Simulated assay, not measured.
Amino acid sequence: MFPDVRLRRLRKGKIRNLVRETTLSLDDLVQPIFVNETIESAIEISSMPGIYSFPLSEVVKEAKEIAELGIPAVILFGVPAFKDVEGSSSYGETDVIQEAVRRIKAELGDELVVITDICMCEYTSHGHCGIVDFGTKEILNDPTLDVLGKIAVSHAKAGADMVAPSGMMDGMVEAIRQALDMEGFENIPIMSYAAKFHSAFYGPFREAAESGYSFGDRSTYQMDPANSDEALREVTLDVAEGADIIMVKPALPYLDIIYRVKTEYAMPTAAYNVSGEYAMLKAAAANGWLDEKKAMYESLISIKRAGADIIITYFAKDAARMLK
Rank of each mutant, 00 (worst) to 15 (best):
A209R: 08
N227R: 15
A152S: 11
V153N: 08
E183M: 10
D217W: 13
M168L: 13
C119T: 11
M182E: 15
G135D: 13
Q222K: 08
L255G: 09
Y254L: 08
T136V: 00
P253I: 05
S219T: 07
A164M: 14
A226Y: 11
D133H: 05
A158N: 03
T124I: 06
M168C: 12
I190V: 14
A158R: 08
A226W: 06
I131C: 01
D244W: 04
S211A: 15
E207H: 06
T116A: 00
E207P: 00
L140E: 11
M169F: 12
H128A: 07
I176P: 02
M162W: 03
K137P: 00
Q222V: 01
H126Q: 08
D238Q: 12
D133F: 06
R218A: 08
P165D: 03
E234R: 14
S199L: 13
V248E: 06
D229H: 15
M162R: 07
M172D: 00
G203F: 11
M191I: 01
V132R: 05
A226D: 08
P225G: 02
T116Y: 00
L237G: 00
A156M: 11
K137M: 14
P204Q: 12
R206N: 07
G130T: 05
S192N: 01
T124V: 07
I257Q: 14
P225D: 04
H155V: 01
M247A: 12
G216W: 09
H198L: 01
A195P: 07
M182K: 15
D133Q: 04
V239R: 10
M223I: 13
M120S: 02
C119I: 00
Y259K: 15
S154E: 01
I190E: 01
T136C: 00
D238E: 09
A179S: 15
I131F: 04
L148C: 02
V153I: 07
P250W: 11
G203K: 14
V248T: 15
K157T: 07
A200E: 13
H126P: 09
Y213T: 12
I246G: 03
V132C: 10
D142K: 14
Y193C: 03
H198R: 06
P189D: 04
I131T: 05
H126N: 10
S154Q: 03
A240L: 12
R260L: 11
Y202V: 07
V235W: 06
T144V: 03
L148W: 06
N141C: 01
V235M: 08
A194D: 02
N227F: 13
P204R: 14
S166I: 04
C121A: 13
V248S: 12
D181F: 10
V239K: 12
A209I: 06
S125K: 09
I190M: 03
G130K: 06
D146M: 00
A158E: 01
P253A: 06
N187H: 15
G130L: 04
